[in-house]
Design a binder for these strands. Structure first.
Lengths: 319, 319
DNA sequence: ACCGGTCTGGAAAGCGATTGCTAGCGTCGG
DNA sequence: CCGACGCTAGCAATCGCTTTCCAGACCGGT
């Protein structure tokens, strides 16, 4: 049965003080309240089950202590992990997060941004946003994750260096023909890292398959890649690598004996694939922490922060 | 550079009308506005880049059109999928969702619930909540997903029937010793379903391993289960099944030739394990839709809604 | 000419909180 | 004994919006 909400007025009346005093004790603010009065108020709050109305407070204070978070796809484990980390960081600072998916569609993305701004979020986190979400007249801090945008602050992993490290590891195992599964346009860095490693070792470019960032995409990409008979494949995301593994198994190839695989991202599920995947781990925690920090502390710089990746050796590379 | 926000007053002034009129046109409300005036206001809105303040509106209207969503772990693919589905359903109705993880901890859960209530959510979705989050004095609709609670409305898959169907399928393949990997206490239904199937076929109970709902848990559970030499394993969740697969691979067992596996949940990743998992699919979309519907339309009944599962045959069962 | 009805727009009362300013009052130094 | 000061507590304005109620303009019918 929905009871009508108890407001600060009720508390004030019950405790026999003015509403202002209730505010003072609720906020433990700079204002002092006599211990005795304070106790009376606290009792009233308990007795009535009073819960301050954050909406009213937000209106008055001009800040909601809420972040907006937009990912291309909440079902993607990487984004889910990021969202979780951001939630944790935000919660630790007393913020909550409005999370929503844009389904990779620029129009939806734009609409969601507008919706969140309308709701007066105190900051906006855009995970792997589309090229130009037009953020000119936005009056709150915005931070882009995993993609650098011209007009906003951003933080993302060292895609190029990380990819290079992954491919170099494959090279150190003696591989000479290393295929690449890369995501759609607009994310060139991992491809560059792959090229860097190959060039530094004096190797020819291996076969490339461009596809979506999905298991299905990786699966199909691997099938076409196999025609070039690579001895190793570097996948630009976990999801793709998982698709690759499936294609490899179906082709009767043994990993890593017949063909090695290394992936970028390193979400937890890569530890339980068969065989477990060697990955270039994206520092999700760090990215989340830094993103939240910048939003709250108001980092001025449009400078993109690049955080280092970590190579995690498991079985799929042959180690 | 943070510009100061443009309010409805600015728009009114710019358009040379009263603030009330601005409201009328913004809300397309019951009130009529002369087309000419209306145009002037719309022009003003565009010119000034006015965005209505949802906080103020919420305060006035007494509803935030926001849902709170608490999952035990945002990183769990099943919950991520659920969250995504709920977000979609909510968005379609003009709601947004405040999502947060309770980390499976009752205390955290309680704190998060309080936080969300403070923020005046219009409804609360609790995914697989702990036993008793004490929701007595809550004045907004609450719905529990994947667990039925004494005091709140709930919706969840047909755990018992689903599990039974999965196990029966295993039996139809000729299996006689079917192990069970089951989650911690408080979720007895899948275990009952397993028993149902066994009893109906006149089979003895197979070995049981109780563990957490995680890959790691499934992995260890399988190792102990193997001592009983089952010919098939039914896992109560995807995550556990993935751990089981790993243990099986490491033991040199071939799936499904040496041992079959069926899992409950059926998140997308089960399609890309090796071999692909036969699963009892939990109808995530349906659950989400029904949950949101109940929240918005205000379902009175405390009756728990049980939605049917679907058996998806893939390779791990031997089909 | 008057009355009633229709159509528009404006004034103003809140929604529940924060906070600057003010007032009451007990205490203490001169 | 008096004035000043420090400590508490209350008043009232304000945040941006919705909505009720009212006023004025204009119409047609009698």
């Amino acid at each position: 049965m929905p009871k009508d909400p108890v407001t600060r007025n009720d508390v004030a009346e019950y405790a026999g003080v003015s509403t202002a005093v209730v505010s003072y004790v609720v906020n433990e603010g700079p204002r002092k309240v006599a211990p005795e009065t304070r106790e009376r108020v606290l009792d009233a709050i308990r007795a009535l089950g009073y819960r301050p109305n954050a909406t009213a407070r937000a209106l008055r204070m001009g800040t909601t202590r809420t972040f907006g978070l937009i990912t291309p796809d909440g079902g993607n484990p990487l984004f889910a992990e990021l969202a979780k980390a951001i939630d944790r960081e935000a919660a630790a600072r007393g913020y909550v997060v409005l999370q929503t998916s844009a389904d990779g569609d620029p129009v939806t993305e734009r609409a969601k941004i507008a919706e969140l701004l309308t709701r007066q979020v105190s900051g906006l986190v855009l995970v792997a946003p589309t090229a130009d979400p037009s953020l000119d007249d936005v009056e709150v801090p915005v931070i882009a994750i995993n993609r650098v945008l011209p007009t906003v602050s951003s933080v993302r992993p060292a895609y190029r260096d990380g990819a290079r490290a992954g491919v170099e590891h494959l090279i150190s195992h003696g591989h000479r023909v290393i295929g690449l599964v890369i995501g759609g346009a607009g994310h060139p860095e991992r491809e560059l890292g792959w090229r860097d490693a190959l060039a530094a070792a004096g190797l020819q470019e291996g076969p490339i398959a461009r596809t979506t960032f999905s298991r299905e995409g990786g699966y199909r990409a691997a099938q076409t890649l196999l025609e070039a008979e690579p001895t190793a494949i570097f996948a630009s995301s976990d999801l793709q690598a998982i698709g690759v593994l499936r294609a490899l198994h179906e082709a009767g190839l043994r990993v890593p004996d017949d063909i090695a695989v290394v992936a970028f991202d390193g979400t937890p599920e890569t530890e339980y694939t068969w065989p477990p995947l060697t990955v270039v781990r994206q520092p999700v925690e760090l990215v989340a922490r830094e993103a939240v920090r910048r939003l709250i502390d108001g980092e001025e710089s449009m400078e993109a922060l690049t955080v280092p990746t970590e190579l995690i050796l498991r079985r799929s590379c042959g180690c």
